[in-house]
């Protein structure tokens, strides 16, 4: 058996600050963009930029498992009980930005990723946060 060394770069650049839209979301494709390989699975991630919040950047899975479509980045940001969430555009469930928890269904949680600015570059962690 061949061992494949998986040494994920902890931080992966995904886009520029100017690609972001304040108080709203955009979507990035991460993983191996050139070819769908087994090592770095491709996935769409929603990035939310909230300039006035304590935490300015959130990265969260773009796939809405309830609607079965990749649309989270296009949801509206909603504060519910003091917590920032994104309301999915299709059926309006709220997902908490900080940990991906669906407020309407305790059994559903989206993956979230650490995200940060590196100068003008937006970087996110290649592995999702562990719950």
């Amino acid at each position: 058996m061949t061992e494949v060394a998986i040494t994920p770069t902890p931080w992966q650049p995904v886009c520029q600050r100017s690609d972001l839209v304040a108080d709203s979301g955009v979507c990035v494709l991460v993983g191996d963009v050139s070819a769908a390989g087994p090592l770095a699975p491709r996935r769409s991630i929603a990035l939310f930029f909230i300039p006035h919040a304590e935490q300015q950047l959130y990265a969260i899975d773009n796939w809405d498992p309830i609607a079965g479509a990749g649309v989270i980045a296009r949801g509206i940001i909603a504060e519910v009980d003091g917590e920032l969430t994104v309301a999915s555009p299709l059926y309006k469930q709220h997902f908490r930005l900080r940990d991906g928890q669906c407020l309407e269904d305790p059994g559903i949680r989206l993956d979230t990723f650490a995200a940060a600015f590196d100068g003008d570059t937006v970087v996110i962690a290649s592995m999702p946060d562990s719950p």
């Binding site: 839209v21 108080d23 709203s24 649309v71 296009r74 509206i76 555009p89």
Partner: peptide, 19 residues
Amino acid sequence: HVGLQDTNDTFMANMQKNG
């Protein structure tokens, strides 16, 4: 006003079930 709109207004089109 960006960020205030529901997705349909944001993209000036109606989102369908598959996005």
